[in-house]
Amino acid sequence: MDYRSVSLLLFFLGLALTSPVENSKASLMYPYGIDQGDTKNSKSDDGTSPEITIPVPFTFYGKKYYSLYVNNNGVVSFGVNVSQYTPDPFPLDGGTPFVAPYWADVNNVIGGDVLWRQTQDQAMLSRCTADINLNFPEIPFTATWTLIATWDHVAYFGSVSNKVNTFQAVLITNGELSFIMLNYDEIQWTTGTASGGKSKTGLGGTPAQAGFDSGDKINYYNIPGSRTPDILKIAETTNVRRPGQWMFQVDEYVVGVTTEESDCLE
């Protein structure tokens, strides 16, 4: 075999070895877009969706919620919308319960879209059920409702670069048991300029916060790296053995120990 043949063989072997890794991250994202029936939030800095009434209650640490908001700055909130753009550390003082796939100063006026849909489509619920059963095999569960919120190629406030982020929050419930799935496709910036970041890089200042906060100062979770420069690498991290994906059961009320601490003890 000559040198050229060996080089070609190594090239194609390289493709075979790397392609599954590259494709696996993209496959974590649930389907989204207008063609999937999504609604787009308005192009508005620090904007939000209208109040979204849901037909199946989402139980979040002992409380049932029947409506929520998808906020442009990387937050799904219950009860009230969230326009704050510089993230605070969890647990929060304000008591607003919310899920933060990537709480930072998004500006979809500059670039990108914030999309969402709630669905009881059987094919999508089957995928949700399979994902929960895979990662929580000890819990009998069949999904009856899901919300898929996606921040697609969104820019940061003050950006003069082409850097964008794509990430997703998926809320899943059967009316009693509730789960959160956070999916990360591509993360290129951490901070808007109003939070101290640099306009050309989207880095510095107060970086993004990821995780969730129940509003009771007891049950919350900070994804490692939150509000530090390491949050830029969130798409390489996981708690379910799939880099770029984090999953949590969030219906149970835990007394006397934070969710963050209990996760560390497992």
Score class of each variant (00 low, 15 high):
Asn183Pro: 01
Tyr184Cys: 07
Tyr184Arg: 06
Asp185Tyr: 11
Glu186Gln: 15
Glu186Trp: 14
Ile187Pro: 04
Ile187Met: 07
Ile187Tyr: 11
Gln188Ile: 03
Gln188Tyr: 09
Trp189Thr: 04
Trp189Glu: 00
Trp189Met: 01
Thr190Cys: 11
Thr190Pro: 07
Thr191Val: 03
Thr191Lys: 02
Gly192Ile: 08
Gly192Asn: 04
Gly192Leu: 04
Ala194Ile: 13
Ala194Tyr: 14
Ala194Val: 13
Ser195Asn: 13
Ser195Lys: 06
Ser195Pro: 02
Ser199Gln: 09
Ser199Ile: 15
Ser199Met: 10
Ser199Tyr: 12
Lys200Tyr: 13
Lys200Ser: 14
Lys200His: 14
Thr201Pro: 03
Thr201Gly: 07
Gly202Lys: 03
Leu203Ser: 06
Gly204Trp: 02
Gly204Thr: 06
Gly205Ser: 08
Thr206Lys: 01
Thr206Val: 10
Pro207Asp: 07
Pro207Gln: 08
Ala208Met: 00
Ala208Val: 00
Ala208Ser: 01
Gln209Trp: 10
Gln209Phe: 09
Gln209Cys: 01
Gln209Asp: 01
Gln209Met: 09
Ala210Val: 02
Ala210Arg: 01
Asp213Ala: 05
Asp213Lys: 06
Asp213Val: 04
Asp213Pro: 06
Asp213Cys: 05
Ser214Gly: 10
Gly215Arg: 10
Gly215His: 09
Gly215Trp: 11
Gly215Lys: 05
Asp216Met: 10
Lys217Phe: 09
Lys217Glu: 11
Ile218Lys: 15
Asn219Glu: 12
Asn219Val: 10
Asn219Ala: 07
Asn219Thr: 12
Asn219Leu: 08
Tyr220Phe: 15
Tyr221Ile: 15
Tyr221Lys: 14
Tyr221Trp: 13
Asn222Leu: 10
Ile223Gln: 03
Ile223Asn: 05
Ile223Asp: 06
Gly225Glu: 04
Ser226Gln: 05
Ser226Ile: 08
Thr228His: 12
Thr228Lys: 10
Thr228Glu: 11
Asp230Cys: 04
Ile231Met: 06
Leu232Val: 07
Leu232Thr: 03
Leu232His: 00
Lys233Thr: 11
Lys233His: 13
Lys233Ala: 12
Lys233Arg: 14
Ile234Gly: 02
Ala235Pro: 05
Glu236Phe: 14
Glu236Ile: 05
Glu236Tyr: 12
Thr237Phe: 12
Thr237Ser: 13
Thr237Val: 14
Thr238Glu: 06
Thr238Met: 01
Asn239Ile: 04
Asn239Phe: 01
Val240Phe: 01
Arg241Gly: 15
Arg242Ala: 10
Arg242Gln: 13
Arg242Lys: 13
Pro243Ala: 05
Pro243Ile: 13
Pro243Arg: 09
Gly244Leu: 00
Gly244Lys: 00
Gln245Lys: 12
Gln245Arg: 12
Met247Arg: 02
Met247Glu: 00
Phe248Ser: 03
Phe248Gly: 00
Gln249Ser: 11
Val250Ile: 09
Val250Trp: 03
Val250Asp: 02
Val250Ser: 03
Val250Leu: 12
Val250Asn: 09
Asp251Ala: 14
